[in-house]
């Protein structure tokens, strides 16, 4: 019985993912195919004047640009189904390799930012919610409102101006010092290059988690079961530990795991400002350079990434909340 339910759940989720991927592919392909950027021109760059129309046509034919849009899409899909994401035009390397390499760099950045924003947001939310209406609460709330309305790239620029330019504590950009071989770069240097982008990215996520946690905690503390718990002699930390944490973690968990999309979006901006060679930067370059295979590859990959986040939230939810467990499986 249990097995049947679980397999049904897996099938349902898989179908959702497949249909999502198909929809995303079609939509993204449609969008890029109407992009004004000429892939051949961006491929050849400044040498364009020296390329004859015949050579141009040859490249176009080689890349299959002469085929109809539908045909191009079908060709691409066929290759993708066979596990071949194609070759990136700007990096001259298989798309899968580029994504793997870039994602690893981004993963560290996003991972640190994600953990930090979740932790700080949760703590701030609790502090604020416990002391609702106090000056501490007001400061935290105000801080969150300011954060929530701050554009990521602007914050990145501010951090850059303050910490790199004025104070000189951190490097201005890149993931490692320029002019040094990869194998000679120390961990400390890598970490130093990571601080500012990670900081910027983490600050963005704090407000959401903090405000929702605060709201939920206020709700929990005002609930009948909190009143009853107090009547049973539970106060302060014990009350929070027994009845608060599990209840308030629900919105925080779903929000934070569902924020993988925002995290990725934030990473695009942060990496661009700090010239950090991650997936976010690659997507911008692919878009501007008309690198359709890479762009589509990253789009598919980020879809998977966001989907995984939502799925994790879903699973965790059922772990935390017994009501969901019963509902989902019934």
């Amino acid at each position: 019985m249990q097995l049947k339910r679980v397999s049904l759940y897996v099938i349902k989720k898989t179908l959702k993912l497949v249909s999502l991927l198909i929809a995303i592919s079609v939509l993204s392909f449609l969008l890029v195919s109407y992009s004004p950027i000429d892939p051949i021109q961006s491929y050849i760059g400044a040498d364009m004047v020296r390329v004859s129309p015949e050579q141009r046509d040859n490249i176009a034919a080689y890349w299959g640009l002469d085929d109809s849009k539908t045909e191009q899409f079908l060709n691409w899909s066929k290759a993708v189904l066979q596990g071949n994401l194609g070759t990136s035009l700007i990096y001259r390397a298989p798309v899968a390799d580029v994504i793997a390499e870039r994602f690893l760099a981004s993963l560290i950045l996003m991972g640190i930012a994600w953990l930090m924003s979740g932790f700080i947001g949760f703590i701030l939310g609790i502090i604020s919610g416990i002391q609702e209406g106090s000056w501490v609460d007001r400061i935290i709330k105000g801080y969150c409102f300011i954060l929530a309305s701050t554009p990521a790239f602007w914050l990145a620029l501010l951090c850059l101006m303050l910490f790199s330019v004025s104070l000189g504590w951190f490097p201005v950009g890149l993931a490692s010092p320029a002019g040094i071989l990869t194998e000679d770069v120390t961990w400390l240097e890598r970490a130093k290059h990571l601080v500012l982008p990670a900081l910027t990215l983490s600050i963005i996520g704090v407000a959401n988690v903090a405000l929702h946690t605060r709201q939920k905690l206020i709700e929990v503390l005002g609930s009948e079961y909190a009143r009853f718990a107090k009547a049973k002699g539970e106060t302060g930390f014990l009350l929070l530990w027994r009845h608060g944490l599990r209840n308030i973690s629900l919105p925080a968990v779903s929000l934070h795991f569902a924020s993988f999309g925002e995290l990725f979006g934030g990473a695009v901006l942060a990496e661009q400002v700090f010239s950090y060679p991650g997936l976010g930067q690659a997507v911008v370059q692919a878009g501007l350079g008309g690198d359709i295979p890479l762009l589509l590859g990253i789009v598919l990959f980020s879809t998977l990434f966001v989907f995984a986040g939502n799925l994790l939230a879903d699973l965790l939810y059922q772990f935390i909340d017994p009501r969901m467990r019963k509902e989902e499986l019934q």
Binding site: R227, K230, I320, P322
Partner: peptide
């Protein structure tokens, strides 16, 4: 409270749902 003086609450929401 909770020891010598206890409360029987009115609401069925008085139990922690989790």
């Amino acid at each position: 409270r909770g020891k010598d003086i206890v409360l029987i609450p009115q609401s069925t929401n008085a139990l922690d749902p989790l």
